[in-house]
Nucleic acid binder design. Structure first.
Length: 876
DNA sequence: TGAGTCACGC
DNA sequence: GACGTACGTGACTCAT
């Protein structure tokens, strides 16, 4: 077996982890972020590299032999924060329990230890990988040594081989030292040659190879200034090079053979994890211990040539693979089934043609566990097969268990729940431009593995759901909803393409006129869509006052431009250009791109396992953000029409569902009464906050009250509210205080939910949906505040999401029961949209509000408004 | 290809 | 007082 040595720059990795992660601490008040990050990194390395030899090198003392050369070396460095220093002993202990050798050497830095050992190991024909965050180490890259630098964070790794160094800098690894010599390194206080940066250094080295040769050939260098500088600082350059050179012959007194890695003492590791409170890592131990016993062996599965009935059982895991997100477009790669009889790979073509398969798929009594039921149903429906008997959707289960960890890749979900025997899709199929189908055996096994994973994981996840009291949420809400959404997506929405094209033409003309006008007023042509160019024109050329800056330059967002409207005529045109441009590119062109040629329908995909709050999202096209606020944009809705002649679009929306939910869960009497009496809630809020009678509420007071309610519903901060209302943060804060004074039970709820989130680590909704908020104990005010607002807001938004989902299920059932032809088409968070034949309008006017209003019983009534018309636009 | 900015909805 | 500000999708630019 090939010997593989991993060398880790201990100080550097700890340092990186410390700054990449929030300042976590455990029960005893010990800071743990650097330890945690370090451990994560370590685990990742062990898992992915499977080293035979290993060492973590640390810096010894403050002074090294380099200080003899240059006493300011590493001068001006910030002292290591005590919060980090105190973590080092734990890291050392942990390494001990992992049986990973660690080493430090008086007068030398970790770099030199690594340099010396890597050289020795190269001679002994090891494969070597070096982990650090310090670019200096790239000088050690060679044919046998790869330098892995973490970029931002701790797990994002960039691997430097000599080729990669060449690509990045155009230099050999050895020349990295020369580069440092010329340009210096501010973090180590290496001076280099003043005025020479990376670019110049690289240019010089490409021509002269080394600092020495550069110095010898100063006369040949072009550029007077450069020449002078080099002349003046040539000694400094040579010294800088020396400082940057990693020693490869440090007197270590150990040999590579002594660094053999034999695996951890799991018990010790476990007890340290326990002491530090590393819950997730503890769980991982159990898993790795289990899986390490039986490493990825070749999977025994059978490729089925001809499908026969005896392949299937009463209970089966069924995995259907597609590459590509859009299951309305992508092709099926293959399918696999696992049951008590074995693991079977089903080749696409023959399977889809097989009547036996069809019969099994459509048999309600043959139970199936799948990953992403909606995708699977639609993929098969495109081939005339109606998948029935879906009992468990692992994607949805995983999403409910923890919405923040709900990736679309099966391998991610599998790993999360302790099943490591599936590769990531990216590893198998590649990504982006490199996406392609690998050899047949490879993807067959990959797909078969997923079927195996399904069986195991479904069991685990079912237990967790039960533990979390989420079985009903899963079986009675999300699972049935998936099938309803599949039908809605499949039905699609008809688009009046001619109308859309017409609107597009008109917009195009108007945009051209506005564009001309803008160029004229600006005195030149430029790209109005480029914030950079626009900022240049407005704030530099035309000298308009700068209201706000962004990271990269001047802000040109709408709220800034609105403030500038009176300053110059051009601003109005730009705002209009933006508005119309948005309509044109996103809603006209964008929509036309996804309309199906023959049917003139769009088939949005609702993502049911994405948002942190439990809402759905919609994509390709996103039909949840079709304009409505401004008349100009609202007209887009005229292009959404019923798919059959004389039918109507029927839209029903919950009135103030979030605030009603708030009234319910806070139990605030004043709010409850307001809703029971069906008052205008913003007027009511204005009355309570401003202490006035109904008649005295001005439109401005109502507007402000509305913004406060908005803030409550969306969990915005005083800052957010101040931006919304154009007032100071202080004033906004006072508003919020007054609101809480008026509704003390709401205040009490908010305080309690934050306490609960801190206690339990998560918050829940009406129907037991969860959202974990680990950041609620953060030391960072902003991070913590954000988590606190999330704690207050998620139960409100999430419960509203629960309610409308329940309404959708009831509605689908009712349509079926009453044998109506009306179809549910869309959900837009608090609104359901149907297409309805004329003779069912009267029925729907009764049924829809009835079903929606009684989806759940709250302490306040739910209220639904509805409207209908020949287009979506008219359903207002 | 990815980050940044902007804009639409709830 | 810090610091960056609900949840999404998508278009566009610009540097890499």
């Amino acid at each position: 077996m090939k010997k593989k040595l991993i060398l880790i720059d201990g100080n550097n990795i700890a340092y990186r982890a410390f700054f990449a992660l929030p300042l976590l601490n455990n029960e005893k008040g010990i800071h743990t972020n650097a330890i945690y990050g370090f451990t994560m990194m370590l685990n990742k390395i062990l898992e992915e590299e499977k080293p035979t030899h290993m060492l973590v090198a640390f810096d010894a003392g403050k002074t090294t032999f380099r200080h003899e050369t240059f006493k300011e070396y590493k001068g001006g460095r910030q002292k290591t924060p005590p919060e980090l220093s105190e973590q080092f002993p734990f890291i050392r202990d942990l390494l001990k329990s992992f049986h990973i050798p660690q080493f430090e050497l008086e007068n030398y830095e970790a770099d030199d230890i690594i340099g010396t050992l890597s050289l020795e190991a190269e001679k002994k024909d090891f494969e070597i990988k070096i982990y650090s965050g310090d670019k200096d180490l790239t000088q050690l890259a060679s044919e046998k040594t790869t330098v892995c630098l973490c970029r931002k964070g701790i797990t994002d790794i960039e691997e430097y081989t000599p080729e990669h160094v060449k690509e990045k800098y155009g230099l050999t690894p050895q020349q990295i030292i020369d580069m440092k010599g010329l340009m210096g390194d501010s973090s180590d206080n290496i001076p280099g040659v003043p005025g020479i940066g990376e670019k110049t250094a690289i240019k010089l080295l490409k021509e002269f190879e080394t600092v020495e040769k550069v110095v010898d050939s100063i006369d040949e260098i072009s550029g007077k200034k450069l020449k002078e500088r080099l002349q003046e600082h040539k000694q400094q350059a040579l010294m800088s090079k020396e400082l940057a050179t990693i020693k490869r012959d440090a007197p270590l007194g150990i040999t590579v053979e002594e660094l053999e890695y034999q695996g951890p003492d799991w018990e010790k590791v476990q007890s340290i994890y326990k002491e530090l409170g590393f819950q997730s890592l503890l769980e991982k131990i159990d898993q790795t211990q289990e899986t390490e016993v039986q490493p990825l062996e070749k999977l025994e599965y059978q490729t089925v040539e001809e499908i026969t009935e005896d392949l299937f059982e009463q209970e089966n895991s069924f995995y259907l693979e597609m590459i590509g997100e859009n299951y309305f477009i992508s092709d099926i790669v293959g399918m696999a089934v696992q049951n008590e009889k074995g693991i079977f790979y089903l080749p696409t073509e023959s399977t889809l043609k097989s009547p036996v398969f069809k019969k099994w798929a459509e048999d309600e009594t043959k139970k199936k566990t799948v990953f992403d039921a909606k995708r699977t149903v639609i993929a098969l429906r495109r081939h005339g097969i109606e998948l029935k008997g879906i009992e468990f959707d692992l994607l949805l289960a995983s999403y409910l268990i923890n919405p923040s960890e709900s990736p679309s890749d099966f391998a991610d979900v599998a790993k999360l729940h302790g099943f490591n025997e599936v590769q990531s899709d990216e590893a198998v199929y590649g990504k982006g431009a490199k996406l392609k189908l690998p050899d047949r055996e490879i993807y067959e096994e990959h797909i078969a593995r997923k079927a195996v994973g399904l069986t195991k994981l479904a069991e685990t996840c079912r237990d967790v759901l039960k533990e979390n009291d989420q079985l009903s949420l899963f079986y009675d809400l999300e699972m049935p909803l998936a099938l309803i959404l599949a039908d809605m997506e499949w039905t699609g929405v008809k688009v009046d393409v001619d109308r859309l094209t017409e609107m597009g033409d008109e917009l195009h003309n108007r945009l051209q006129e506005i564009e001309k006008e803008i160029y004229e007023l600006a005195g030149q042509e430029f790209n109005i869509n480029s914030p950079k160019q626009l900022g240049h024109i407005l704030f530099e050329k035309m000298g308009l006052p700068v209201i706000k800056k962004t990271k990269t330059g001047y802000s040109t967002s709408a709220d800034v431009l609105e403030k500038l409207e009176s300053s110059h005529e051009i601003v109005r045109y730009i705002l209009e250009y933006r508005q119309l441009g948005k309509l044109q590119s996103t809603y006209i062109d964008g929509l036309l791109k996804v309309v199906h040629q023959n049917t003139h329908k769009v088939h949005t995909r609702f993502n049911q396992a994405l948002t942190q709050t439990g809402r759905l999202s919609s994509a390709d096209p996103n039909l949840q953000n079709i304009p409505i606020r401004l008349e100009e944009g609202r007209k887009i809705r005229q292009a959404f029409v019923p798919s059959e002649k004389d039918w109507v679009i029927f839209s029903a929306d919950y009135s103030q569902i979030e605030l009603r939910v708030l009234a319910h869960i806070s139990g605030d009497q004043k709010l409850i009464e307001a809703f029971r009496e069906d008052m205008d809630i913003h007027t009511k809020t204005a009355m309570d906050v401003f202490h006035v009678q109904k008649e005295e509420v001005t439109s401005n007071m109502r507007r402000q009250a509305k913004a406060v309610n908005f803030g409550i519903v969306y969990g915005i901060s005083d800052y957010g509210l101040s931006q919304n209302l154009g007032i100071t943060r202080k004033e906004a804060g006072q508003f919020i205080e007054r609101y809480f004074a008026s509704y003390p039970d709401v205040k009490e709820y908010m305080d309690e939910i934050v306490r609960e989130a801190k206690r339990k680590g998560y918050v829940t909704t009406l129907l037991h949906r969860r959202r974990y908020l680990p950041e609620i104990t953060s030391r960072n005010f902003n991070v913590r505040s954000f988590a606190e607002r999330t704690a207050m807001n998620t139960p409100i938004q999430g419960s509203a999401a629960d309610i409308i989902k329940k309404a959708m299920i009831d509605m689908a059932e009712r349509l079926k029961k009453e044998q109506l032809k009306s179809r549910m088409l869309l959900q837009v968070h608090d609104e359901l949209i149907f297409e309805v034949p004329p003779d069912e309008i009267e029925t729907m006017k009764k049924i829809v509000p009835d079903v929606m209003e009684h989806a759940v019983e709250l302490k306040v009534p739910l209220k639904v408004d509805y409207a209908y018309g020949p287009t979506w636009y008219d359903a207002k």
